[in-house]
Design a protein around this nucleic acid. Sequence first.
DNA 1: AAGACGAAAGTGGTTGA
DNA 2: TCAACAACTTTCGTCTT
Length: 316
Amino acid sequence: MNMNISGNVKEVDVEELTECPECDSEHIVRDYKRGEVTCRNCGLVVDDQVIDQGPEWRAFDSEQNERRARGGAPMSVMVHDKGLSTDIGWGGRDINGNNVPTKNRAQVYRMRKWQNRTRASNSADRNLAQALNELNRLASKIGLHRQVREEAAMLYRRAVQDNLVRGRSVEGVAAAALYGACRRCEVPRTLTEITEASRASKKEVGRTYRYISRELKLNLQPASPSVYIIRFCRELELPGDVENTAISILNQAIAAELTSGRGPTGVAAAAIYIASVVHDQRKTQKTIADTVGVTEVTIRNRYKELAKNLDIVVYL
DNA sequence: AAGACGAAAGTGGTTGA
DNA sequence: TCAACAACTTTCGTCTT
């Protein structure tokens, strides 16, 4: 009766879904509080209008309906006070929708001003507010979904708590937190991509990232090249069999210990290159190098090593 | 002409004395 | 603090398709 569902009804039956339609991984996460179904692997938001299947009140007349109606945004670590503070609106109208008399306007203005000021009362809060702002800006620019943003916000909060921010720029720490969040969520983003969106330099972000990673004991292993293969194959519009071959090449490389100490993107790029040649879907070294963000030389060095040590019987 | 190749020099960061 | 070092990049001349 009062199910008011606006928004698109998706073709996919999200209730039954176990695999991501985009990357086929099984890291599907349902969050009914937010009404979102997302893939932890590739970041795809499968559906964002999910109906909570839990018990719900019913209203039998309009009076009950009004009384029981609830509103308000969910609590979020992405806002410095977790989104639970009060906002004083700008409309110049009171709660009943009447105009605020002119003689009271100045008072409302002052109240709004002080509400906003006292909300971020100390410098730590102001810092946090600014950082979360920056975090959101970066995440939007790179196109990261909420899961990663919240993870980044959590990391930043922990960094603040442990006094790791002092003496470092907000931009730098924010970018580092976001990078760490990407790593933790296994959303493959390179440090370069993040620093390009940020005002902070790659050097600073890298240094800060190592620092907070060490201090917060994040224990992050180097990113696995496989997540990069999945992502970059898609960007290069290479079919699934190429991707599978690339991953199997990669697994052989890992078994032969050809990956340790090497940059994961370089290894991924080389595996993709070989796979693309094997399947007669050849991409030039340059194309792959540009998408992956390494140079042709690195691809060459890596794939020479791979070809030599894995006796791949492919003549190019 | 584009792509692949490889040598050589340079970069930024780590490690160990 | 400094030198050695590994991985990676930039640049450039040459070979191959």
